[in-house]
Design a protein around this nucleic acid. Structure first.
Length: 497
RNA sequence: GGCCCCAUCGUCUAGAGGUUAGGACACGACCCUUUCAAGGUCAAAACCAGGGUUCGAUUCCCUGUGGGGUCACCA
């Protein structure tokens, strides 16, 4: 009885993938995997005005990055192709014509100018805007005449004039629309391309889609889609209208046009590539997105996609729209970062460092990775935290950064001198050895760990914030550590006592 | 404005008639501490309003309010 689960993600290739699109894709993917079904990628490139030849590659790259691999679609093929709508034009035209032939749709020759005028007149009479169905009343002879004149018509749906259309939505139950409020929407444009509405129904039928999971924005046009299914007499898929992700302040949906901001006024990226470039992990972004509108259960929010697949359930989707909880992404990213095995983290850190202009020595990378792991929220932060390890030329800190709290140039000089004399005698430069040696100095110098270590940290790393000092010195090595300490000591001379 | 959807801490959410309304993020305090993190402990913080139904409503119904979506030869 039950059809096999076949779901689809049907983006329109207009650039990188919108973050909300990724969430929709993710839910479809989770559902497909959960039910051992098929996840189909279909490209909705039926708007020639918005055609962008590079967009498809960018889009699929984002999907692959997120780990949402499709079973059927461009690149991978499948039994229900082609998966790009512009390659299926004949099919839409054929079925649009079928609707006309069967009295379910009609050709409309109205110009955009007339359409505009109709709305203007309606507005003047304080009526609701909308097409006046002028061409619905055209006789076959009139239609033939206009076509003989070479006029290119659109094909419009003949919506029922009265009664109701009921759309069954998994999350909301029956949604009822009064047919009087509906429009005779365009199904096939005059250039022979379908609109979304026609393409959706025709493709989902022929691709044997079992569940239509799409954004909530589509709910208002679902009545039209329902009438289309009825007109064709095809089996109707299950509809799930997913909640929309709103701006973090809850005002309006996430959009590139009107960039959302967090509570500090920082602009929040909307495109998946922005998140990739910002150093987020795909497993974190997926985890983050899965938590918006869906709930894992067991009061758990940190999980892998494998775990999510196991538990994914339409019944746990919350139909309410939600603000984009941007702070949780940083937290989750940190969690996933720390959960990564060290060699894997190193593998992901490398390109970030290279992009920042460093040449990355593998051994050095392996040494640095463990000491930065708990200190990173995003991969990109490794540059500020530990970039100095990879810099060809050491950049010392400004001398005035050397003295720590309650220290002056003299005490700083002394701290440096003593440290140097202790450190240069050491045979072993391991973290424990150096730590023990330096720590002993604090008493004689009358300083606390924070002060003494701070001076050395600034001298050795060139930064006031760095990974732990003794680990850092071990990696930098004895000779270079001493060189930097002497450099600092020297620079102190320029500082007024 | 018409139509449609939605409504629990600031935010993401659990809850499906009787709960001290739970968790998480962020925020604050404290502990740990070598800077920054991480980790630990604690605190503060919510059922939009008004009517019903009911012995009893956060939960069910209605109305209002608020928010969102949508009204193209874009998807």
């Amino acid at each position: 009885m039950a059809n096999p689960v076949r779901v689809r993600f049907a983006p329109s290739p207009t650039g990188s993938l919108h973050i909300g699109g990724l969430r929709t894709a993710l839910f479809n993917w989770l559902y497909a995997r959960k039910h051992n079904g098929a996840f189909v990628l279909r490209i909705e490139d039926t708007d020639q005005k918005r055609y962008d030849p590079t967009a498809l590659a960018t889009l699929t790259e984002a999907l692959r990055w997120a780990g949402l691999h499709w079973d059927e679609g461009p690149d991978v093929g499948g039994a229900f192709g082609p998966y790009v709508q512009s390659e299926r034009l004949a099919l839409y035209q054929q079925w649009a014509q079928w609707l006309v032939d069967n009295g379910k749709a009609y050709k409309c020759f109205c110009t955009t100018e007339r359409l505009a005028q109709v709305n203007k007149d309606k507005e003047a009479r304080k009526e609701l805007p909308g097409y006046d169905r002028f061409c619905r009343r055209l006789t076959p002879a009139e239609v033939a005449e206009k076509e003989a004149q070479g006029l290119k018509p659109v094909i419009r749906m003949k919506m029922p004039l009265d009664g109701q259309t009921v759309v069954q939505d998994v999350l909301r139950g029956d949604v009822v629309f009064e047919n009087q409020t509906q429009q005779d929407a365009v199904l096939l444009k005059s250039d022979g391309f379908p609109t979304y509405h026609l393409a959706h129904v025709v493709d989902d039928h022929f691709m044997q889609i079992s569940h239509v999971m799409r954004a909530n924005e589509w709910l208002p046009s679902a009545a039209l889609h329902m009438q289309l299914w009825l007109a064709f007499g095809w089996e109707i898929p299950v509809y799930v209208h997913l909640p929309v992700m709103l701006n973090p302040n809850g005002k309006g949906k996430m959009s590139k046009r009107n960039p959302p901001k967090d509570k500090y006024g920082n602009i929040i990226p909307v495109m998946v590539h922005d998140y990739i470039n910002a150093g987020y992990l795909p497993e974190a972004l997926d985890n983050f997105l899965a938590n918006i509108g869906w709930n894992f259960g067991e009061e758990r929010e940190l999980f892998t996609m494998a775990e999510a697949v196991e538990r994914f359930d339409l019944a746990r989707i919350n139909p309410a729209n939600s603000a984009f909880p941007t702070e949780k992404l940083d937290w989750l990213n940190g969690e996933h970062l720390r959960a990564l095995p060290l060699d894997e983290l190193a593998r992901r850190l490398r390109p970030v460092l290279e992009k920042a202009g460093f040449s990355v020595d593998e051994t050095l990378l392996q040494q640095v990775t463990p000491i930065v792991q708990t200190r990173l929220k995003t991969l990109n932060e490794v540059v500020a935290m530990a970039g100095f390890f990879f810099r060809a030329e050491f950049i010392p800190a400004a001398p005035d950064k050397l003295p720590q709290k309650k220290m002056d140039a003299a005490s700083t000089r002394l701290a440096l001198e003593q440290s140097i004399s202790v450190l240069e005698t050491l045979r072993d430069f391991g973290r424990e050895t150096t730590h023990a040696a330096v720590e002993k100095l604090t008493e004689t110098l009358g300083l606390n760990n924070s002060q003494l270590f701070g001076v050395l940290r600034t001298a050795v790393s060139g930064q006031q914030v760095s990974p732990p000092l003794f680990e850092t010195m071990e990696i930098v090595g004895q000779a270079e550590t001493l060189r930097r300490l002497r450099l600092a000591l020297e620079s102190l001379k320029t500082l007024a006592a």
